[in-house]
Amino acid sequence: MIKTPRATLGLILLALTLTLSLLVSLPLAVQAADNPPALPTDFALHSESITLPSNFDPFPEGPGAEAMNRNCLTCHSASMVLYQPKLSEAQWEGIVDKMVDIFKAPLIPDDRDAILDYLTSFQKAE
């Protein structure tokens, strides 16, 4: 839709009048209900390329931290673990099993105990 400048000006004035009358009659206007701009008829999509921040920050130090760093950071940042609420040993074990059995995390078998120890102790230490 192509509007003439005059029609656009008219619309702006109308919108301003409406806004002002709302401000006078109501103590607090509802959220701006600005419609997002209409999509032009000749809308086209343009290639996109982004660079994502990469965060491989290690887990806080403690017994088992190295096993955590070796096994967990490949797929996700440490914050995913550190932001979890306090969970029981059984819950942590269930999560580790899910990572291995369903999400196919290539866990080094000898690291499993150290990982469970870390997970169950870091929350107690807080």
Partner: peptide
Amino acid sequence: SFPEKGEMILQRTRPPL
């Protein structure tokens, strides 16, 4: 720090939350 994003609460960097 995320492309095409303003200030956001960082739940996780990789994969982004």
